[in-house]
Every structure is written in C-alpha cells, then in structure tokens.
Amino acid sequence: MNNLMENAMRRSIILGVAALLGQAAPVAAAEPTAAEILKKYDDTMSPKTFDALVVMIAHRQDDTTRTYKFRVMKGHDDKIRLWFFEPASAKGQEMLRVGENMWVYMPSLKRAVRIASRDSFQGGDFNNADALRVNYVADYTPVLGDSGDPKSYLLDLSAKSKDAAYDKVKLWFRKGDLMPEKAEYYAASGKMIRSMKFTDVKDFRGLRRPAHLEMKNELAQKRWSEMTWLDMKLNVEVPAQRFVVDDLGR
C-alpha cells in the first residue's frame, strides 16, 4: 500500500517536472544566446563582402557641420578599405584595415601611415575602428544583461584586446529581428564616452540594416556625428590585391 502510494507520488512528480520542462523547453530554444545575437549584429552591420557609399556629417561645438563622403569596401577575411571623395581637402585620402592594423594614405605624403583604432575618424565622433568596423565577435566577449524592457535584449560587451574600438560596450537589440537599437560606449574607467542610436532600417538588396547611425560625444556637449548609408552592394567582387598597403593611393 505504502509502496503504491510512493510510486504514484513519484510518478506524478516526475510527470509534473517533465510537464514543466516540456513547457519551458520550446521557449528556451527561441531565446538567442549572447554569442548568437552578436553574430547577427556582425551580419547586419558588416556582411561578408560589400561595397557601400556613406555620408558622414560631423556636428561641431560651434553649431557648424562638416560633411564627408566616402566609399567603403569590405573584402574577404575582414579586410576593409575606404576612399574619401568629399570634402575636397580629404579627396585622395584612403584607409585600410587588415586585422587590427589600420593605415591612412595621405596624398600629401604619397604614402600610408599607421593609425590607431581609437583615434577620431576625420575629427568627428566616430573612431577609426567604428568607420572600419568589421568583426565584433572577434573583438568582444558578450554577456546578456537586463535590458529593463521586455521588447529588447541587452548585450554587455567587454573588449578582448586594446585594439578593439572601445573597452566596454552596451548594445540594445529589438527582440524578433534583432535589429540594433542603441549603444553606449565606455572607457576602461567605466566612464561613458559615446552613445549611438541606430535608426532608419532599410533594405539594401535583401539586407535589412539601420541606414542611419547617430554617434553622440558624451565628453563634449553639442558634439555628435551621423553616418548615412546611401547605398550598399552585397556579394560584390572584391579583388584581394585591393586590400594590401602597397595598393593604397593607386
């Protein structure tokens, strides 16, 4: 009698737990991991190869603006190259990133010069690694955080090396399509130095991504920069010889 009851109880507990697990399991499968979200972020912002036309407007302290127009081409193995068209004073300048190394080609020097990933990109509020953005999965360790909003995920990123664009990044993603919404960038000290808004999600030949980025400088009042993707071609031919230092300026 006793045994029977025990068995029945045991069975019902097991069943109950199984039922609970059965209910929880499909939900857990739908929740992406931190690594998956970050991978999706890379796929959205920096697909395998592309050729894009971008306009950057830097808003300065004195309420004036400076406009830059450039072409960005991403080749295989996260190599990326950039050509400036505007303003006239920047025309002929080029940039190249291979791994964590970055160069700028200066027409006045007729040669390329090594630059740092964290230096300002053309005096604006993006840094060089932002403009030559390739691979966050390689640069950061992601952890899921509490976004404080049931409709979005929060990723806390910490840099794997000093070459990453920032020491710490907080990224918010929309649940569902995992579109980036906003970001906060922090120095090693924990001080917020930049914040970004991703807006104007557009379809570029099948790739949906924010076409407008607004980077606010948190260290200086009234300073911010915006980048607008005018066009983005995907799966273009990217000749490997375009992505070596010696090719800059040619």
Partner: peptide, 16 residues
C-alpha cells in the same frame, strides 16, 4: 618624420 593632424575643419592632413 610625418606630422598628422586634423586641420581647422577636422579633415586629416599630413606633412613631411
């Protein structure tokens, strides 16, 4: 050596 800096307009420039 080469000197690099952002000019008055913020555009990068360099001289030898």
């Amino acid at each position: 050596v080469a000197i690099l800096t952002n000019d008055r307009d913020g555009v990068l420039n360099a001289v030898d």
